[in-house]
Design a protein around this nucleic acid. Sequence first.
DNA 1: GACCAGATGTACT
DNA 2: GTACATCTGGTCT
Length: 208
Amino acid sequence: MARLQPLGRRFYQRDTVAVARGLLGKVLVRRLPEGIVAVRLVEVEAYLGVADRACHTFGGRRTPRTETMWGAAGHLYVYFTYGMHHCANVVTRRVGDPQAVLLRGAVPLLGRELMAARRGGRDGSDLLTGPARLTRALGIDRSLDGADLTTGADVFLADDGFRRSADWTMALPRVGIAYAGEATAWPLRFVLAGRGGRRRGAGSARRR
DNA sequence: GACCAGATGTACT
DNA sequence: GTACATCTGGTCT
């Protein structure tokens, strides 16, 4: 894993669903003060911008929080939710077309101890399953909102040659967006089958 | 498996 | 000022 090259801007400028599928199996590398950690993405969700009721930019909403999504592809969009959790997204498409892919789950490749330490010593099959667990284990917060993923700096995505077959990719309804009307059922959540994806299905959607 | 509380930033009135 | 959020961890059954 010594010489991973960051994915280029063009990878992110494609159709959001294509980017989401393409991200499965890719390696997310994070440089922490304590060392380098790396994980393989196994679960993501696509958010399709102004036409997607579940998306922060639905209807053209543009606020300080969502500004990163409105910018160039290949940047990290990090937001804070439920008063205590951070979630990380990858911005896709082009400037002015605010779409993104939420990183929901991964499996550890390198630096597992560092990640477990950041999660308060918890280490188990749920170390990286769930968007907020992922960001916590990788030390991702609002300070990384807008970070460029193509430079290979603090955080970036890379291809280490891992090849998933299309047969191993599942498309499922998204999670936690019961408020989103018809968009709730759109199959925009992609999971690498047979890998640590979460078992909790769409059925766990909260009241509210 | 089901259910609930938690803590606060963000959007909107 | 108010409502709610791309969720998690803990408890109860």
